[in-house]
Design a binder for these strands. Sequence first.
DNA 1: TTATTCTATATTTAAATAATATATAATACA
DNA 2: TGTATTATATATTATTTAAATATAGAATAA
Lengths: 146, 146
Amino acid sequence: MKLSTRSRYGTRLMLDMAQHYNQGPIQLGDIAKRQDVSVKYLEQIIIPLKKARYIESVRGPKGGHILTRPPGEITLGEIVALLEEGTSLVECSDHAGVCQRADSCPTRLIWKEASEAMFERLQAITLADLVNKAQAMNSKEFDHVF
Amino acid sequence: MKLSTRSRYGTRLMLDMAQHYNQGPIQLGDIAKRQDVSVKYLEQIIIPLKKARYIESVRGPKGGHILTRPPGEITLGEIVALLEEGTSLVECSDHAGVCQRADSCPTRLIWKEASEAMFERLQAITLADLVNKAQAMNSKEFDHVF
DNA sequence: TTATTCTATATTTAAATAATATATAATACA
DNA sequence: TGTATTATATATTATTTAAATATAGAATAA
């Protein structure tokens, strides 16, 4: 029931881009440095985000990636659902066919409820919220040091 | 972010035992047949449930397993937390040490919130609720056929 | 004493994750 | 026009975890 690194890194990728929104194309090399993840891995993770049109890209020198929507209009629920390829905790939530018991199985309903509870919470948080949170955490750290 | 079969089967094991509560020791062989899971696998899955004292067992012929508490006093949240070895979606929720960024990482807080939302929901459901739900689903099916 | 059931540990298999490597395509800029 | 730079596409490898089975042993009812 752990989140994949794909989701974790992908979310940080999106957060990083939100933190540099409206600063032109952001390069994976820079994100990789800031987030301490290999460029190669980010190249893979960004694919679904591009396919889903969260990101558009420019090749060549000075190229990079750009968010197609403002951070306030992208929720973590969307991002995680995309990177985890759905919101279900079990196969049978989406595809009853995989299990003969599906029709009479009460646990199936529970797993669905549980994941709904989780994603409702994630839907309520935007990238802009995260950017603000990150700022708050950093200034707090700053205060603490001096 | 999928639930392990360990959790799924373990939950069904507990549900099965709840459905036969107060009927003496229940044998894994019978549960295995009803739930269509190998005895060998159930033997493994039941270990943490015994360790956590949800179940007590009797060896030998006519032996089996017994719930130590009534189904109405056991929540799905407890069971899943036990079988998944915790409630966190990411390592760093519990052990900040695994990541240097932990102190300044806003996503870390989000993953914690998300899993809390999920487990709050699961805490609200008892095995007794599931037993009732199963009965309702079966009688509904029955109605449908005739 | 024997069949039955649980217990303990080890092993195997399979699948999914995580990460890297190689080759190609587009483009800014000199 | 050429070159360095960055994205794209595909393939491959490595690692880990999950899932399942196998073997041997201990307790106990009959």
